[in-house]
Amino acid sequence: MRTPKLTDAAVQAALALRAGWSLENGRISRTFTFPDFVAAMRFVNAVADAAEAADHHPDIDIRYNKVTLALTTHDSGGLTEKDFALAAQADTIAA
């Protein structure tokens, strides 16, 4: 069953709760900065585990100690609660 796409108002309300995340081209994204490459890869692996458990996979861009996550729910055609739930998990993992 497809996860319902959020309205623009719901997206803005959810985004207001996620410090550091921004809306770009129908996706939410955030760049996380770590002390070094090893710490960045630990984060990526933990996010990958959370994403696999949720069956919801972000786009991940790794640049040495910077990791950018971009989220959207492709099969729903936009942003859903799944995106904001994984964003919250990524924030917790990074903390």
Rank of each mutant, 00 (worst) to 15 (best):
M1S: 02
T3H: 10
T3W: 14
K5P: 09
T7H: 08
T7A: 14
D8L: 14
D8S: 13
D8E: 15
A9W: 08
A10F: 04
V11G: 08
V11E: 04
A13M: 11
L15E: 09
A16K: 11
L17C: 03
R18C: 12
G20W: 04
W21Y: 06
S22I: 05
S22E: 14
E24Y: 04
E24R: 07
N25P: 00
N25S: 13
G26E: 01
R27C: 11
I28T: 05
I28F: 03
T31L: 09
T31E: 10
T33E: 09
T33N: 02
T33C: 04
T33H: 11
F34A: 10
F34S: 08
F34M: 12
P35V: 06
F37M: 07
V38N: 05
A40Y: 01
A40H: 07
M41A: 01
M41T: 09
F43Q: 07
V44T: 12
N45V: 07
N45A: 15
A46V: 01
A46E: 04
A46S: 08
V47P: 00
D49S: 15
A50N: 14
A50G: 08
A51L: 02
A51C: 12
A51G: 14
A51Y: 05
A51R: 11
E52T: 13
E52A: 13
E52P: 01
E52S: 15
A54R: 12
D55N: 15
D55Q: 10
H56G: 13
H56M: 05
P58S: 03
P58W: 00
P58N: 04
D59V: 15
D59R: 12
I60G: 01
I60F: 03
D61M: 11
R63F: 03
R63Q: 15
Y64M: 11
Y64A: 10
Y64V: 10
Y64I: 10
N65R: 04
N65M: 10
N65A: 07
N65T: 09
K66L: 06
K66Q: 15
K66F: 03
K66M: 02
V67K: 01
V67T: 00
L69H: 03
L69K: 01
L69Y: 00
L71T: 00
L71M: 07
L71R: 08
L71N: 05
T73A: 02
T73R: 12
T73P: 13
H74A: 09
S76D: 03
S76E: 04
G77R: 07
G77D: 14
G78S: 06
E81L: 06
K82F: 06
D83E: 11
F84E: 03
F84Q: 06
F84A: 02
A85Q: 06
L86A: 00
L86T: 02
A87D: 12
A87Y: 01
A88F: 00
A88V: 08
Q89W: 05
A90S: 14
A90T: 14
D91I: 05
I93N: 02
